[in-house]
Design a protein around this nucleic acid. Sequence first.
DNA 1: TTCAAATATTATAATAATCTAATATACCTG
DNA 2: CAGGTATATTAGATTATTATAATATTTGAA
Lengths: 98, 98
Amino acid sequence: MKDPAEMKKRCTRVAAILKTLAHPQRLFILCTLIRGEAAVGELQRECGASQSLISQHLTRMRREGIVQARRSGNFVRYRVADPKLSELIMNMERIFNE
Amino acid sequence: MKDPAEMKKRCTRVAAILKTLAHPQRLFILCTLIRGEAAVGELQRECGASQSLISQHLTRMRREGIVQARRSGNFVRYRVADPKLSELIMNMERIFNE
DNA sequence: TTCAAATATTATAATAATCTAATATACCTG
DNA sequence: CAGGTATATTAGATTATTATAATATTTGAA
């Protein structure tokens, strides 16, 4: 927790995660998903972005290990992959609500 | 906390902050600064980046309201501007330490 | 006032992120 | 299997971010 080299490694790792969170629509999607699973179409409607763009956001977050997908018939439902990230998002909501 | 339009506004605002945090060196600088003030030169040494680059990082964070500067003789000392951000960084350290 | 140290700014080349439009794939139903 | 709905992928133009090098500013001290 104090070794500078170790600290830098962590900063690099965490910065990569933050980079993925640092987009209005991706953050909105995550704020939605911490409340529970949602299908792409729902996210698309709530988010108000194009199908392609939402899908690209989700793909990026999937690759980054931030969300997980599961197919349910014709739909694909997403959830937050890591409880740590749910916790982080909830912290941010608490901190930034006025 | 549930109105989608309000939620989007907040996501836009918070995403802008996260974008600024989402860089290994800037994050490292902030992790250092939550422990207390530091001069540019110290940050530069601990960070191992060029003088110009550190200064650019600090300028950006200053513009974003994330850090504050004060001159102390020949040096300029920086601190975290907003306790909310200190709290966020500390939360992230807790969450991502293993 | 001149010098040197500390910090800031500017210009710019290289790289990465973003969005749109078009196309592809997967699955269900008849 | 044909058609439709849901989602994913790709290509490409546009814009933003990053890092380096060069230069400028500020300040204390001789």
